[in-house]
Design a protein around this nucleic acid. Structure first.
Length: 653
DNA sequence: GAGCACTGC
């Protein structure tokens, strides 16, 4: 079948000319413009691959793979030769590769060993309007690079209509090219007021569409799993109650991230004849997954967003209003196959006056310890981290928070200079506290255990509370099959769980039997392997990454690994308060917190929790909680408190 | 005694 002519091809001369004359060009490519597959080919045809390769970044792994596959087939070459891709755990490139798709995280990692990115003649930051943390860091690095690199680097940035000018201004007024897309028009219908109950309002709108509108699938954007489940069952019930033969059949499908893959795939099979599909989805359907056949969109106007507060060190997950960019992206989902309609459950004045232009970029909503460490390790001597040129700078508070954290775990010294430890930490694809734990564990001789714990934590393996708490456990020990951390806490439990899986020969059924997600367990195994390889390369002296399950028998109290964790989480310590089981965090901003009820940390005979713990994260839900905690000992904590006293933020940049 | 949107190295 002949592929339709993509709009972007009509502009290829203009694009090539502009790139020739300018180091940086912003491309505003609407959905369906073909920018992701064509920009690289246009520049390839114009000879840009003679002096180096073309890198095209994507914020998501699947996108990098599918787009690379597509381009290879369009050029009629086998994937991995001239056209390839690189994502974590998978490098399908060769020395002949001249068009390389990769995740933004991968390009950032390449910049560690090659800060000038000399192998590339062109770097295209695709989907930059999504403003992922990694893309934002890359934008800042690109701005430096075009000034510094002696060879003729070309940078292209694709953006959305609403912030193209902003990106251009960031790159000293570089040209902005518009490439139209192939979307059909979408009619926007606003509510006259904000509904008091948006689940009910979604439900009513969905039924109205079903009864009144011609066939076509409906996509409903909601905030989370709970609301989706509620909506699905209510909608099914109401449709059943409709008069027989009054309208076509309907099926209702949920769609969110924690759904098992086989359930997610269901949305990709088209509706049977004479049947309308209702897809009730989270944000996942906004950019990550594209559902075909959608003609109607119902937009609640809300999204659930994780945010980091640098003044408390705490994360929270809040329901917030979407931005105009997001609202337009959601509406666009109705116009992929024919003209569609978008029902916005908010008045037009709210869209115009209350919604932000664009979503607050991730860089302003995350802890920046990892990113700051990365920038420090590029050892570009002129970098003052507080003056680094970001498209949207994070707050000073957030950067200072990152510097303090890095200092407390020995990644930078009291003058803000990166240390040898810090350099090694940056090599590890882990958040700084886990990287520090791993290095310390290698010194203490418990590397294998630390590899397991850090891999399990970075794969976010969640363990369901299967019985085994206090009373039941005392009644019958053999009842609980899943390890419980021996009272030391959640890190040790993760370690024991992985070791049990190892002893079960990594049988996937073992995971299912114990209510563990096979996907995340496998992921943690891959991470562990990757970490072992990296640490064997960077660590001097002996490294023992092999399992020592038997040898560990003498180490019943997990002294060494807990000690390593205490060092790594030097910035995430808490001390129990007298006479009760509340804690206050130890640091430059003390917070009152509690152990999350999901924790397996155990109290002693007197009902007292350990005096000192480290925590993986602070999360504010109904109250401030420490999630994933591990018991540590006072003597290990003392030196960190000493360091805290000495800290002077004014010297730390 | 609580409950989690989505990505990525």
């Amino acid at each position: 079948m002949e592929a339709p002519v993509l709009p972007i091809l009509e502009f290829q001369d203009k694009i090539a000319e502009t790139v020739e004359e300018n180091p940086v060009v912003v491309i505003i490519g609407e959905t369906g413009s073909g920018k992701s597959t064509q920009l690289s080919q246009i520049l390839h045809r114009r000879g840009y691959t003679r002096s180096g390769a073309i890198a095209i970044t994507q914020p998501r792994r699947v996108a990098a793979v599918t787009v690379a596959r597509r381009v290879a087939s369009e050029l009629g070459v086998p994937l991995g030769e001239e056209v390839g891709y690189a994502i974590r755990f998978e490098d399908r490139t060769s020395n002949r590769t001249c068009i390389k798709y990769l995740t933004d995280g991968c390009l950032l990692r390449e910049s560690l060993s090659n800060p000038e990115l000399n192998q590339y003649s062109v770097i295209i930051l695709d989907e930059a309007h999504e403003r992922s943390l990694n893309t934002d860091i890359l934008l800042g690095l690109m701005k430096r690079l075009i000034k510094r690199r002696s060879s003729n680097l070309k940078v292209l940035i694709t953006s959305a209509t609403l912030d193209g000018v902003k990106v251009s201004r960031f790159f000293s007024g570089c040209p902005v090219l518009n490439v139209p897309g192939t979307l059909f028009p979408v009619e926007k219908l606003y509510s006259t007021e904000r509904p008091t109950n948006y689940v009910e309002s979604c439900l009513k709108t969905a039924l109205d569409i079903h009864v009144r509108e011609p066939p076509g699938d409906v996509l409903i954007f909601m905030t989370g799993q709970d609301d989706i489940d509620k909506m699905v069952s209510k909608l099914e019930e109401r449709i059943q109650n409709l008069e027989e033969g009054s309208c076509i059949d309907a099926i209702v499908l949920p769609l969110h991230g924690s759904l098992p893959p086989e359930m997610q795939i269901r949305v990709f099979s088209p509706a049977p004849p004479n049947c309308r599909r209702f897809i009730v989805a989270t944000n996942i359907a906004e950019t990550s997954l594209t559902v075909d056949g959608i003609v109607y969109v119902i937009d609640s106007g809300f999204v659930k967003q994780r945010q980091y507060n640098p003044s408390t060190g705490m994360y929270s997950l809040d329901v917030v209003q979407i931005s105009r960019v997001q609202a337009d992206q959601r509406a666009g989902r109705a116009g992929r196959t024919r003209p569609g309609k978008c029902y916005r459950l908010y008045p037009k004045t709210i869209y115009n006056e209350e919604f932000l232009d664009a979503t607050i970029p991730e860089i302003q909503r995350s802890s920046l310890a990892g990113s700051v460490l990365h920038l420090k390790s590029l050892s570009l001597s002129d970098i003052d981290i507080l003056k680094f040129d970001f498209l949207d700078p994070p707050s000073r508070e957030s950067l200072e928070d990152a510097l303090r954290q890095l200092y407390l775990i020995d990644a930078i010294d009291e003058n803000g200079e990166i240390t040898d430890i810090g350099k090694s930490m940056a090599e590890l694809p882990l958040e700084p506290s886990l990287a520090r734990t791993l290095l310390e564990a290698n010194e203490l001789g418990c590397l294998s255990q630390a590899l397991t714990v850090t891999a399990m934590l970075s794969a976010e393996v969640s363990i369901h509370p299967t019985r085994s708490k206090n009373k039941e456990k005392k009644r019958k020990q053999s009842f609980s099959r899943i390890p419980d951390g021996s009272g030391w806490g959640d890190h040790i439990q993760l370690l024991q769980v992985f070791e049990s899986w190892h002893l079960a020969d990594y049988d996937p059924n073992w995971c299912t039997d114990n209510e563990l997600h096979v996907r995340s367990m496998k992921f943690s195994k891959d991470v562990r392997k990757q970490l072992s390889q990296i640490i064997q390369k960077i660590a001097k002296g002996s490294t023992d990454v092999e399992f020592g399950v038997r040898q560990r028998k003498s180490d019943k109290d997990y002294q060494k690994i807990r000690r390593a964790l205490c060092k790594g989480y030097g910035n995430q310590l808490a001390e129990r308060m007298l006479h009760h089981n509340g804690y206050h965090t130890l640091g430059y901003r003390s917070q009152l917190v509690q152990v999350h009820p999901s924790s397996v940390l155990e109290a002693d005979e007197d009902g007292q929790l350990p005096d000192y713990v480290v925590y993986h994260e602070l999360i504010y839900t109904s109250r401030p909680f420490m999630r994933s905690v591990c018991a540590v000992e006072m003597p290990w904590v003392q030196p960190i408190l000493k360091k805290l006293e000495k800290m002077n933020i004014h010297k730390l940049r």
